[in-house]
């Protein structure tokens, strides 16, 4: 049980196109999944966070309640089951109807899975905004939609950015579960390389290192964006003294 570093190096130089293909697929799934998931999460999270206003008409009230039930169910199911099971189940369930490739199915599944987590982050982000912000907006006559878009969303997204960004890291790793429907991402590639060479330890060591590089770079980029988001203050102060 020892690691043959020489072999690992040779495997890497020989099989790098296969690894590279896997890396590109993994990144594609992670990025699309995170962005699409964020959009889904914004909508679902906002619906989930809607409060019943005493001034609502009966119809609005009923619609809001239906919205709560629907979004609650969605989050419950997709956070409560493994993505691998969701992938296999939905892939085969919908295949006769939509005739999708495993690539399309993979993109869809990672997006709605991420959407459920994003929705929870957004919902708690919205609910953690001081009620005074909402009351002030209402007190000058803003509608619920206006105050959501202009006052609550921007603050909720900024406050939850670290958690939202963390979903990218999670997706870089968890996209490997899509190998269950034969999506040719990094883990899938590693498995086939290891299978033909029978050198599991070396191949998976390389794979682990690649994942580590990807997540490290992603963390670095996210930290930069985060710093820029909170850096707005200095800009405003400069404008002020100008």
């Amino acid at each position: 049980m020892r690691i043959d570093l020489n072999y690992a190096w040779r495997a890497l130089t020989k099989s790098w196109p296969l690894f590279l293909y896997g890396i590109r697929m993994t990144l594609a799934f992670a990025i699309v999944g995170t962005v699409a998931g964020l959009l889904i999460g914004l909508v679902i999270g906002a619906i989930h966070a809607l409060t019943i206003d005493p001034l609502d008409k009966p119809l609005t009230r009923v619609l809001k309640k239906i919205g709560h039930v629907f979004t609650g169910l969605y989050v419950w199911v997709f956070r409560g089951t493994p993505m691998m099971v969701q992938a296999v189940f939905l892939y085969y369930l919908l295949k006769p109807v939509v005739h999708w490739s495993s690539f399309t199915a993979g993109m869809f599944i990672i997006s709605i899975n991420t959407g459920a987590y994003m929705a929870e982050i957004i919902r708690s982000g919205i609910q953690s905004i001081d009620i005074g912000q909402t009351e002030a907006a209402k007190s000058i006559g803003m509608t619920n939609t206006q105050l959501m878009i202009h006052i609550i969303f921007p603050q909720a997204i900024k406050n939850t950015f670290p958690s939202l960004g963390n979903q990218l890291i999670v997706n870089i790793k968890d996209s490997c579960m899509l190998n269950a429907i034969a999506v040719t991402e990094l883990y899938f590639q590693a498995t086939s390389i290891a299978g033909s060479s029978m050198r599991y330890i070396e191949i998976y060591m390389i794979t682990a290192c690649i994942y580590l590089v990807l997540t490290t770079v992603a963390t670095f980029i996210l930290n930069n964006i985060e710093r820029r988001l909170s850096g707005k203050k200095t800009v405003a102060l400069k404008e002020m003294s100008a």
Binding site: L55, D130, G132, Q133, E135, A136, A137, K138, S139, I140, G141, M142, T143, I151, P154, Q155, K158, A236
Partner: peptide, 22 residues
């Protein structure tokens, strides 16, 4: 209601300025 509210604007104990705006 919204039109009406804008006609009777309110000032709060805790100010409640919009934190995301200058």
């Amino acid at each position: 209601v919204n039109k009406y509210r804008s006609k009777v604007a309110m000032v709060f104990q805790n100010f409640n300025l919009f934190n995301n705006k200058n």
